[in-house]
Amino acid sequence: MDDAQRANRRLVTRLLMLVVAMFAFGFALVPLYDVMCKALGINGKTGDPYRETQQVDESRQVRVQFVATNHADMVWGFYPVAAEIVVHPGAVSEMRFVAENPTERVMTAQAVPSIAPSTAAAYFHKTECFCFTQQRLQPGERIEMPVRFIVDRELPGDVKHLTLAYTLFDVTARLPPSVGPVAAHGG
């Protein structure tokens, strides 16, 4: 075997190792994301399902305000059915948001949530949310999308008001032409 063949084998071996490392890194991203969200107190994914069975604290009330905004290039109508509700920590609560596509074309959107104050984000757990999937609407179509959540009983006592805000992004152009949206409608 000459030097060129050995060099080619080393290159192929290194490239294969790189592919394996990239594949492993892809799998590691989900747990890394979860750890980062928990460590930084940002509202990434939902809390654990066992939280739905936690006891309700009837002695406390927390006002949850809902805000819906569109990113600059999004033309849909997007709003909550109520501006706010009062919940008891530990109780499963629900709010519905409305999305309307006023255009003459099929569009796909993705909602990105945030919680304020940021220190309370770790105590707000979405168990079902339209933000988990992309929403595809036909021209003129209108849908109601639920978000189910629990304000944790461990929420600090001085926090009496939370704001759940969504920003809606148009992701239609980001989808490959041969691939449809992740979900037509979602919870």
Rank of each mutant, 00 (worst) to 15 (best):
P117K: 00
V182E: 09
A122Y: 09
F25M: 08
A83R: 15
Q110T: 13
E94D: 08
V87L: 00
V171W: 00
V98I: 05
I143W: 06
A111H: 03
N70K: 10
E144D: 08
R63F: 03
L32A: 15
P80G: 06
K126H: 09
E94A: 11
Q54E: 13
F97A: 03
P102R: 05
V35C: 10
T103H: 00
I150D: 04
R6W: 05
A111F: 03
D170W: 07
K45P: 03
V12I: 15
L11A: 15
R10T: 11
T172C: 04
R6S: 02
V20L: 05
G187K: 09
T163A: 12
V86I: 11
P177Q: 01
K45N: 14
A116K: 10
R63G: 01
P181L: 01
G157T: 12
V56F: 02
P102K: 00
T133E: 13
P31M: 09
R6D: 01
T46M: 10
N8Y: 11
D34R: 14
Y79T: 06
R9A: 12
I143E: 07
A99H: 11
A116G: 09
K160T: 14
D57R: 02
E94F: 01
Y166F: 15
E128T: 11
G47C: 13
F78W: 09
V56Q: 01
L29F: 02
P49D: 13
T163Y: 03
F66Y: 10
E141W: 00
P89S: 00
R148D: 03
F132I: 13
D34A: 14
Q135G: 07
D57P: 07
A83P: 03
V98Q: 06
L137T: 00
R9M: 10
T127M: 14
A24V: 15
R96T: 07
R10E: 11
A7G: 06
A120Q: 00
P177E: 08
P139S: 08
F130E: 07
F132G: 08
A83I: 02
A99W: 09
V182L: 12
V56C: 08
M95Y: 04
R142H: 06
T163F: 06
L29S: 13
V86D: 07
